[in-house]
Design a protein around this nucleic acid. Structure first.
Lengths: 204, 204
DNA sequence: AAAGAAACTGTACGGTCGGTATAGTAAATA
DNA sequence: TATTTACTATACCGACCGTACAGTTTCTTT
């Protein structure tokens, strides 16, 4: 059982994340967070040294959750097939399904949020953001390397670029989904990426 | 020759855009803009009714410029080939070249910026944002329809989704380029989209 | 039960925010 | 020359910003 402090901390992080994704980092005041959580300013500063400290913990939590999420989907894909290409394709299908099953449209990605407010956060957060993208790159690249080792690509492609393409599709798909208020778009785009992977490595 | 007022107006818009792409909309104060432009608050409010009014004009200008930019590249592509598929492929190559020739990394896209601060701008700006994405969709879709009319796609694909994919690649590519501080990524991603189009319609 | 640490509340601070108002002025235009 | 355009300069507002800290309650350990 998490201590009371941990619970409050988690509540602050949870609510702050939602607010920041809708209003931006600079646009979300500490008072906004206090209003939603019900705690007072002193309580907030007991847990965090300030807004930038909040941003750092927020991003850390977000990246860890995302990593866990991706890992879980890859593990599930690995139980369903032994072939690296099929695993990748299954992973993408599972990811698309998860995005389709969200209650509303995707709330947004903190990495993109901070990327567009880079001057509002300190160098630590910017660096953390870079590392976050890099860890996604490595996660996807690892699988794509396995694919490329077994299947000759139709055209010579870089696994890193292809890994980045998935990140780009996710980030871009989220932006479009947000603006159109239609989660289907992110799903469609993920499936297009999947088709591209199939064209590259599968004998279609 | 633009009148003195027009010049000042343009200067405000130009500087505000740069600031907003780096610090976000809420994170950019009117005072910030005054500092950079050298005008006073009275001067600013002579030209704009407030921050939201600025946002609207900013987005309008941005979308018009972008539309002109895309149109110019399509026209150039049309002078180089009569075939719709080749025109699309040339367009994408030209677009990638333009992105590669930017002096620094891509400064960002206002559409994404406002998408991640949707609660900070009024409904007019949000609607304008949607229309902006929609006009890109139509621009790309028009060309892709011509392609699909002449070339049977390898897999049945929706021209709208494929058009949105380009927008997503651009938006996502910009995010990655910003975070990694490397404009090459956006270029790579545009070329991957190009390869996907080739796989879909061309006999590779 | 006492002590101490953890988890806050309450309040106050100086600064800045977007926005408004107004008086004055220089330059372009009719 | 008269009028409009395009500002400057200054002052002000209430709201809110992030920060600080002294005090109080709640939990945990001994």
């Amino acid at each position: 059982m998490p201590s009371k402090g941990e619970q409050t901390r988690e509540k602050i992080l949870e609510i702050a994340e939602g607010l920041i994704l809708q209003k931006g980092f600079a646009g979300t005041s500490i008072d906004d967070i206090l209003r939603e959580t019900g705690i007072t300013k002193g309580g907030f500063f007991y847990h965090f040294n300030g807004k930038n400290d909040l941003a750092r913990h927020l991003l850390l939590r977000y990246l860890e959750n995302d990593q866990r999420f991706f890992n879980a989907l890859f593990e599930r894909a690995q139980t369903l097939s032994e072939d690296p290409l099929q695993q990748m394709l299954i992973f993408l299908k599972l990811l698309a399904e998860e995005m389709a099953n969200l209650p509303d449209t995707h709330p947004g990605c903190l990495v993109a949020s901070f990327a567009y407010e880079s001057q509002q956060v300190d160098a630590t957060v910017r660096e953390l953001n870079r590392r976050g993208l890099q860890s996604w790159r490595e996660t996807f690249q690892t699988q794509l390397d396995l694919v490329a080792a077994r299947y000759p690509a139709r055209t010579e492609v870089s696994a890193v670029e292809l890994a980045d393409m998935l990140s780009a599709i996710i980030e871009g798909g989220i932006v479009l989904s947000k603006v159109y208020a239609d989660q289907a778009i992110l799903v469609q785009q993920l499936l297009h990426y999947r088709t591209y992977i199939r064209f590259l490595f599968d004998r279609v």
